[in-house]
């Protein structure tokens, strides 16, 4: 076993997902299959290999100039929000 149910539950919490018992069972087994398949990477010697960077060419320094452009109106910004009141998005109270 690469990963047990408790760990799957922890990962689910980090991912903000929840599963029923049966689904949890299935996911744990499927994740194990996939992670076992990943084992084969340990056969590759990567001691002297740099991790691939995101860009395919040796590219760097993509900048924009510090110039202000018009924003959306708050109405446009909030149009898609399931619960917006006035100028703000409303969420269940965040405890601080």
């Amino acid at each position: 076993m690469k990963i047990g149910k408790a760990e799957v539950a922890h990962i689910a919490n980090l991912s903000r997902l929840e599963f029923g018992d049966a689904e949890m069972e299935l996911f744990t087994s499927q994740l194990n299959d996939i992670l076992l398949y990943m084992e084969k990477l340990s056969a590759v010697d990567t001691a002297s290999v740099m991790p691939a960077t995101t860009q395919e060419m040796a590219r760097h320094n993509a900048f924009r100039e510090d110039v202000v452009a018009p924003s959306l109106s708050s109405e446009e910004a909030l149009r898609n929000a399931p619960d917006a009141t006035g100028d703000c998005i409303r969420v269940p109270k965040v405890v601080e």
């Binding site: 990962i11 997902l17 992670l35």
Partner: peptide, 22 residues
């Protein structure tokens, strides 16, 4: 968060989110 994401995403997406988080 949890209910919206669990009901909003299908199984394959959830599987990959779980794998990626792990």
């Amino acid at each position: 968060y949890k209910k919206t994401r669990s009901q909003g995403f299908g199984s394959e997406v959830k599987r990959r989110i779980m794998l990626g988080t792990y």
